[in-house]
Design a protein around this nucleic acid. Structure first.
Lengths: 212, 212
DNA sequence: TCGGGAATGGCACTTTGGTGCCATTCGTCG
DNA sequence: CGACGAATGGCACCAAAGTGCCATTCCCGA
């Protein structure tokens, strides 16, 4: 299962210990790191449900870590903690997608509530995205030609229009189309369109010579 | 035209005048209000491109106004200004969807940049949503039966399955389906599905539907 | 009471979509 | 060289979708 684990990064050992005690008392699994680098070296497994980051730390600070994780595609919710933060800092963090920004001395209850709701929200989002993720994983299995056909199919073109645009025979289009449906694991055109839409798929690869 | 106008709410006349001067110098149309209530009474026309709100004001404060506007369906971007705000306040505002939270004494350049990018982002969002809005406006034109058919069509059901589920004849389903396409103003099933998806339309009526 | 929209369904016919099977042509990889 | 997948396309056949026209029934408002 995913989303049951919390990763904490704070350079202050006493804060780390306090958070660990607090969350473990809530039956939440916790792993603590002393620095952002340590977390990055360790990697962020998929079972993470929430990150609790100190803002000001030596080396990579919390906001930098947020950016770095975002670039690496880690989209787990982040709760920030800070001893001496200011408003621009909190605005930047929130704009970066943080779910909360708490000031120390922290309110234990507020932290727990924040982490819990973050984990729940993330879990909900992930399960809703599950079918989309499964679909995206099937996309690379399509050949270049099949992707082209897919793009035109979800664009609402008729088979014969697709044949014209690609300069191939109608029968060939039907073959590709059928294979796309099978490979994508969908039963209906509606499902195919919906998944492409949700996956934010635009057909990005229509230029010939693409790697297969 | 929409999105070319900025509404300002601040109880301090000198601040209102300063902001008006500042934005008008940027060739941005500005209307200022002394209180949140005044803005609410005036209403928020669709040509608004951005709201600039003071956080602390007598009566309804900026955060309350944000909530109120949100409930009324006003989704224009909001830039907050504050003389004595704190972090929880900024977090609350940002979580409520604000695009920025600036502290006084304000940086004129920062305000202008914030307002400009907010307006641009909003305009972009609105134009991207235009076809969806047009679609949603056509939905009420559908009869109850047509909506039921639409729901099942976008769920990927075949006409004969729809006929079975609704207990009507195949031919009748075809008639409804054809009318839905015409009334919705779409040319293809793909377009219909995409619009329903983007409009967040669930059909709010279908019963079973496990086999998908 | 009449007109009209909505829902229903039947019929005929055309167009699209989908599948299977077969065959050919290219590259690529052992 | 030979096997293999990808792409191509032709053919047959069936299922599904789409259209136009007609008719009936029901209900609602003028």
């Amino acid at each position: 299962m995913s989303g049951t684990h919390v990763y904490v990064v704070d350079d202050d050992p006493s804060v780390r210990r306090a958070i660990q005690r607090l969350l473990r008392a809530q039956e939440i699994e916790v792993t603590a790191f002393e620095s952002a680098q340590e977390l990055l070296d360790h990697g962020v497994p998929s079972e993470v449900g929430c990150l609790v980051l100190d803002v000001s730390m030596p080396g990579i600070d919390g906001l930098d870590l947020q950016r770095e994780l975002s670039e690496r595609g880690v989209d787990a919710p982040i709760v920030f903690l800070t001893g001496h933060g200011d408003i621009p800092m909190s605005v930047s963090a929130m704009r970066g997608g943080a779910v909360d920004f708490l000031v120390k001395p922290m309110d234990a209850d507020a932290l727990v509530r924040s982490v819990r709701s973050a984990m729940e929200g993330y879990a909900g989002r992930r399960s809703r995205d599950a079918e989309v993720v499964a679909f995206q994983e099937r996309l690379p299995g399509l050949t270049a030609r099949e992707r082209q056909v897919l793009a035109l199919v979800v664009a609402g073109r008729l088979n014969k229009q697709i044949a014209l645009e690609l300069g191939i025979a109608l029968d060939t289009v039907k073959v590709h189309r059928g294979r796309v449906m099978r490979k994508a694991g969908v039963e209906s055109l509606a499902e195919l369109v919906r998944l492409c839409e949700r996956a934010g798929w635009n057909g990005a690869a229509p230029d010939p010579g693409a790697p297969t």
